[in-house]
Nucleic acid binder design. Structure first.
Lengths: 205, 205
DNA sequence: TTAAAATTGTTGCAAATGCAACAGAATTCA
DNA sequence: TGAATTCTGTTGCATTTGCAACAATTTTAA
């Protein structure tokens, strides 16, 4: 059973859930207003954004299908102006964590299935987070790039990989300066470690 | 109900679980051997360790009470020599993710409670991971230190914080060179941002 | 209690990185 | 289609960082 089916079924019974559409450019949720909320993205893409003190836009995370997010996943006392912006048209489920933790009186099968599905989704989330942490833990841009490429390569069982996002976004993901990253990519090419054409990269090692 | 109670109760019924003691220095689990495993640390402390190609010991993560870990949380195809070492005497629950995902035939209440508890524990885990990612995303050592201090400060509702681990371990956690971090701490002191005495730090801003 | 091990603190130096600034290519959107 | 916006690619320069190496202090374990 798909996540969306489960949630469609349970919605009316015991947990307050909303399935909503969000046009491109609209705000799906804000972490300071919606406490303890969980969102599941059913389709589309979205970014988790913060504006820092200087008004710079920081993209902290980005979400696609079946990703799960919300204030419930953030450290208590989120007093940051965090919000999730739909970068494409999105469809999402929104509900409160506390609502699903409460034991339902009718002991409905779907409630249990929902919790179990959530466990599955969150497990996926922590796997992605572990990957991200592993990459960010690398000390140099070169190491970050190579471990990122290596992960993409393992996922696709191939030395030929396609970057899933722009180089600008990649620099954000690796949390390094874009121009410094470009310089490092150039070095990797010059030294014969990789071959690059557009957003396609071939690992030569 | 405590996690340990739940698991004690469920153990005999429908999910194969082991509660084990581990003396200091022993290995709790290895990710390459025990696939799809989940461990819950009931007491003690442990480190997630990898030996890199040069034989250097990398501490990737560290766990304490109620932390949850195991190969199930790692990217598929973990071909890394990852293992969890008890740095103190530990008590832990070990089981397979697949076992708890299977619907139990007796539809036992405890099975449902277990899944719900796991959800809770994992939620906590992702919150910690988000914190870590946020810190690692900072570009400079200074920013990493300050955001780490700020998080500790918020947690304890005080400008006076106590580092929960050694400076050497802190450098690992922030993923920076220890000597460079010491230098930066010294600058922060000299510039009047912080006051430091042993592992106690007072934020002066 | 003493030796061994780990942690803290410090420094010079080379290398890596971020920053700023710019031009050209590609993409988006009205 | 044409203008505006975003993305890619590049470079010089100042700053930050990692690395190596060492001494002093503290902690651990025999």
């Amino acid at each position: 059973m798909e996540v969306s089916d489960i949630i469609n079924t349970i919605s009316s019974n015991c947990v307050k859930m909303q399935k909503k559409f969000f046009p491109k450019g609209s705000i799906i949720t804000t972490y300071m207003e919606k406490r303890r909320q969980i969102c599941i993205l059913l389709s589309g893409k979205a970014d988790l954004i913060r504006y820092d003190l200087n008004g710079n836009k920081d993209i902290i995370d980005n979400f696609s299908q079946n990703d799960i997010f919300g204030e419930a996943f953030y450290p208590v006392n989120t007093n940051n102006e965090l919000f999730v912006l739909a970068t494409e048209e999105c469809e999402a489920f929104l509900f409160l964590y506390d609502d699903i933790q409460v034991k339902c009186k009718t002991n409905c099968k779907f409630h249990a299935t929902l919790v179990s599905s959530l466990l599955d989704l969150i497990l996926n989330k922590t796997i992605h987070q572990n990957t991200r942490i592993e990459i960010l833990s690398k000390r140099t841009i070169r190491e970050k790039l190579l471990s990122y490429f290596s992960i993409l390569s393992k996922k696709s069982f191939s030395k030929n990989i396609t970057l899933p996002f722009s180089l600008t976004t990649l620099a954000d993901y690796l949390s390094v300066d874009r121009s410094a990253m470009m310089r490092e990519i150039k070095s990797l090419i010059d030294e014969g470690f990789i071959f690059k054409e557009g957003n396609k990269i071939k690992l030569l090692y």
